[in-house]
């Protein structure tokens, strides 16, 4: 909930996005295999983009660990700021929330540290250090 409901009206679309169309899991899985082939056959920025696509597909069908792995690899291939960093913060936070529900202290700490690492990385990237 926002304070004072500032900008509530005009922000509504962003706050409550259109209900996502029901995903056909099989189709997504097939698409994943297709994108995996693309990842294997490309290099550099193209590979990083393919990995981002792969990450999104995994995230769509709630395969969070696989999505994280794809985005982490994408960030390794292409160190610039963008999709991979923003999605990783969200996914780490999701894992952190799951760990909190399960009262798993070690996992909460692990994913909080991961989020903090991303913040440090984004600072360094902007300063041209990473």
């Amino acid at each position: 909930m926002g304070l004072f409901g500032f900008g509530k009206k005009k922000d509504k679309p962003a706050a409550a996005p259109e209900p996502e169309p029901v995903l056909d899991r099989e189709a997504v899985l097939a698409k994943i295999e297709e994108v995996k082939a693309k990842v294997a056959s490309t290099e550099g920025v193209a590979k990083s983009n393919a990995l981002n696509e792969l990450g999104k597909l995994h995230a769509d069908i709630d395969q969070i660990d696989e999505a994280i792995a794809a985005y982490e690899e994408s960030l390794e291939v292409n160190h610039t700021m963008g999709k991979a960093s923003t999605q990783l913060v969200k996914l780490y936070n999701k894992k952190r929330a799951q760990a909190a529900e399960a009262k798993d202290d070690a996992q909460i700490k692990y994913y909080l540290d991961k989020v903090n690492e991303m913040l440090a990385l984004s600072k360094d990237q902007l300063r041209g250090r990473a």
Binding site: M81, G82, S85, T86, V89, N93, R96, A97, A100, E101, K103, D105, I108, L112, V115, M118, L119, A120, S122, K123, Q125, L126
Partner: peptide, 17 residues
């Protein structure tokens, strides 16, 4: 741990990307 469903309010570099 005590408020598992809370949004973490993070430092500003979270938005830089």
């Amino acid at each position: 741990k005590l408020v598992p469903n809370a949004r973490p309010a993070l430092d500003c570099p979270v938005l830089f990307t």
